[in-house]
Computed example of a mutant assay.
Amino acid sequence: MSIRVVVADDQELVRAGFSMILDAQPDIEVVAEAGDGAQAIAAVREHRPDLLLLDIRMPVMDGIEAARAVCADGDCRVLMLTTFDLDDYVYDALRAGASGFLLKDVRRDALVHAVRVVAAGESLLAPSVTTRLIADFTARAAPRTVAPPSERLSVLTGREQETLRMMARGLSNAEIAREMVVSEHTVKTHVSNVLTKLGLRDRVQAVIAAYEMGLIVPGDAR
């Protein structure tokens, strides 16, 4: 079954290039394109894709607002596009529910891999550079109203808190399993419990929550 994708970017050549690369894959189908945030939302609602590839900086409605609307609407996952790796909007995009981000100069194979990974329910979080970036934005972001750390963390068992801490460091399930000396299946169960108990969408939001709750501080990521 093909991964259904909507590509949204205000630059026609960029949009067409990404669409061509993705449509050439046997397991990916680009079902629509959009030139602004409002069009992106409309396309998602009409075509019900598995994934929206969305530029952060868009006319009419920016990518952050569009991502927030799409993520609140249903199960479509959002993969953001940005021009710079330190784009000031990356953190807010992740907070809006995006499952990761890519630079616009991403290699062809990396683009395809990212779409497959995010569509499968994972997030682009494993590279340490991504974890450090999220830590940086968390540290620089304006204070947000969140529950006291002890109150939020109290719903997690000790093992689940340990799992969350390792997720925030950017460790994969296999790496967490080795650190905790348990099976990957057990780790997957811990990760699922963390997301469910904290009401989080995916690993990206789990990492943000870990920083916001003070479970890990910028600089702890490997």
Rank of each mutant, 00 (worst) to 15 (best):
R95C: 13
D109G: 01
K197W: 04
A114V: 07
A206G: 15
A110F: 08
T145L: 13
G97H: 04
L195W: 01
A34C: 07
D73C: 10
Q39S: 03
V118Y: 04
L124W: 03
D27Q: 05
E65H: 12
V117K: 02
A120L: 06
H185S: 11
P26R: 13
M167F: 10
V207D: 03
G17N: 05
A174V: 07
A209N: 04
E175I: 11
A34I: 06
F84M: 14
D202I: 01
D50V: 06
S150N: 15
F101N: 00
L102Y: 05
G37C: 14
P49R: 01
F18I: 15
A221S: 03
E29V: 07
V60R: 07
R169L: 09
G158E: 10
A168R: 05
V70Y: 09
T138D: 00
S192T: 13
L125N: 06
V129N: 11
A43F: 07
L171V: 10
A168I: 11
A168W: 01
A32Y: 02
H190D: 00
A168P: 11
E122Y: 08
S128P: 06
P148Y: 10
R169F: 12
A168K: 01
R4K: 13
F137E: 05
A16S: 13
R140C: 11
S172M: 08
A147S: 12
I41Q: 03
D23I: 05
L195Y: 07
L124D: 04
A66M: 06
I41W: 05
R222Y: 07
R159M: 14
M61P: 09
Q205T: 11
R108K: 15
S192E: 11
D10T: 13
I28Q: 02
L198H: 11
